[in-house]
């Protein structure tokens, strides 16, 4: 759907300060054996740094170029499949 109106919507884009992954102190690691492929981490990540690959053995993937290590994904994962490890 497209429109010529000036709409108050925005789409995810690369931030102006570039690759911000180096800000990270802790690193989310996904345990793919535990992962139940719900996509909740993808939905919650405030930096859009989780991509859904849909691959049966690797449903989601963290983009470490941009992940700032906030830990939200680890917190919301219903099966505790994401652990935060020291960088």
């Amino acid at each position: 759907m497209s429109s010529t109106h000036k709409l108050p919507i925005s789409r995810p884009a690369i931030g102006v300060v570039g690759k911000t992954g180096y800000w990270r102190l802790k690193r989310p690691e996904v345990n793919y054996v535990k992962c139940i492929k719900c996509g909740i981490c993808w939905l919650y990540c405030p930096d859009s740094s989780i991509n859904i690959l849909g691959d049966p053995s690797k449903y989601v993937e963290v983009d470490y170029n941009y992940c700032k290590g906030c830990g939200i994904c680890s917190n919301v994962c219903p099966v505790k499949a994401i652990t935060m490890t020291e960088e």
Partner: peptide, 26 residues
Amino acid sequence: SQPYNMCSDDVLTMGNLPMAEEAMMM
């Protein structure tokens, strides 16, 4: 019919902070 769909594959945010001029333009 509507200008965009919040539940489609087109991932988007509605209502983010705009610049003053953009807000007035809207």
